[in-house]
């Protein structure tokens, strides 16, 4: 028991509290991005204001993180996978309802899309969304009910069919065919990647483009290959200031500067390095992004609210796939 007898108090483990702290509550895949971006912003803020700022990170599934903020997690800024989750926080009164208009480009400093990750050499010859529904293929995707990324996967496939004028029936058939091929539904994007890369399950993984780029660089990535479908969805992970928190803590100025710095040349270039599609053409030169014809969620589904009600709510089209 001696080992447990005298742990030093928790407070002693952290240095004296710095004058300013920000808490950025984010979704799973952005850990590496914000690690680097935070360091850049801390330097920038020190240089321009002479003030020290410390930035704390919290990561998890997008929906879970939004719920934590609603339940009292003291986030200064939220950077989540989908607007639907920030809308949920806004409807609880913590964020102004018109948050999307507060920052440029609909409060989305960078975008991404959904691509395919396949085994080296693409042995199954997977090129487009229709190929995923081929009988006998094994497709790995997380569960759209619990993973923000998986909702983009689902909507990308659905939208692809609509773009080809197959109508709702055709879209439903395609998505049903794809999910019939899914042997494992992990609860989050990272779990799905592990299933595909490390456990060797499946022929193809549906993933965020930035996740696919990261997986190619991680152990086992040399046996994989990225395939960009001809058409995919423009995934827009938005950011917002949590008004209630920053007003209470008096951190609005630095929180706003933090989010705005995402749009700066340095912020954009860091985002591009981590595989997110930047908004500025200069930063886009950092990495060659695959030419994919991108459609926005609004152009096909109207709004997140409608997309959620039609596809992911209880008893909606995703549930019906499994209840036949």
């Amino acid at each position: 028991m001696a080992a447990f007898a005298a742990p030093p108090p928790v407070s002693a483990s952290a240095p004296a509290p710095p004058p300013l702290t920000l808490l950025n509550v984010s979704y799973d895949p952005t850990r590496e991005l914000y690690q680097e971006f935070n360091a850049a912003f801390i330097r920038h803020w020190k240089k321009t204001t002479g003030q020290d700022v410390a930035i704390k990170q919290s990561h998890g599934g997008s929906g879970k993180q939004a719920r934590s903020v609603i339940d009292g997690l003291g986030a200064d800024v939220v950077t989540l996978a989908l607007a639907h989750d920030i809308d949920a926080i806004a409807s609880s009164g913590l964020i102004a309802k018109d948050w999307r208009g507060k920052l440029p480009q609909g409060s989305t400093p960078f975008t991404s899309t959904i691509v395919f990750l396949v085994r080296k050499g693409n042995p199954k010859g997977i090129r487009d969304w229709e190929a995923l529904a081929r009988p006998g293929l094994s497709v790995i995707t997380p569960n759209p009910k619990t993973s923000g990324g998986a909702r983009w996967n689902y909507l990308a496939a659905w939208g692809d069919a609509l773009k080809k004028n197959k109508g709702d029936a055709g879209a439903r058939a395609l998505v049903e065919g794809i999910f019939k091929n899914v042997p494992v539904l992990d609860s989050g994007a990272r779990g799905a990647t592990t299933t595909f890369v490390q456990r060797g399950m499946g022929d193809v993984l549906l993933a965020w483009e930035n996740e696919a780029i990261l997986a190619l660089k991680s152990p086992g990535g040399d046996r994989l290959e990225m395939v960009a479908p001809p058409v995919s969805i423009l995934a827009e992970p938005p950011v917002a200031i949590v008004d209630r928190t920053v007003d209470k803590k008096g951190t609005r100025a630095v929180a706003e500067a933090y989010l705005r710095y995402l749009y700066s040349p340095e912020g954009q270039s860091i985002a591009a390095q981590h595989g997110y599609r930047p908004r500025t053409p200069e930063a886009a030169k950092v990495r060659a992004f695959a030419p994919v014809k991108l459609f926005t969620l609004e152009s096909v589904f109207g709004s997140w609210e409608k997309a959620h009600a039609a596809h992911f709510a209880d008893g909606a089209s995703f549930d019906r796939i499994y209840q036949k």
Partner: peptide, 24 residues
């Protein structure tokens, strides 16, 4: 916990985070 690293993260949660960062 809120998963704030270095602040409200316990050992088992740290394991999960590291695992999710592909640092098996």
């Amino acid at each position: 916990s809120g998963h704030i690293r270095g602040q409200t993260n316990t050992l088992p949660l740290e394991v999960e985070i590291l695992y999710n960062e592909y640092r098996t």
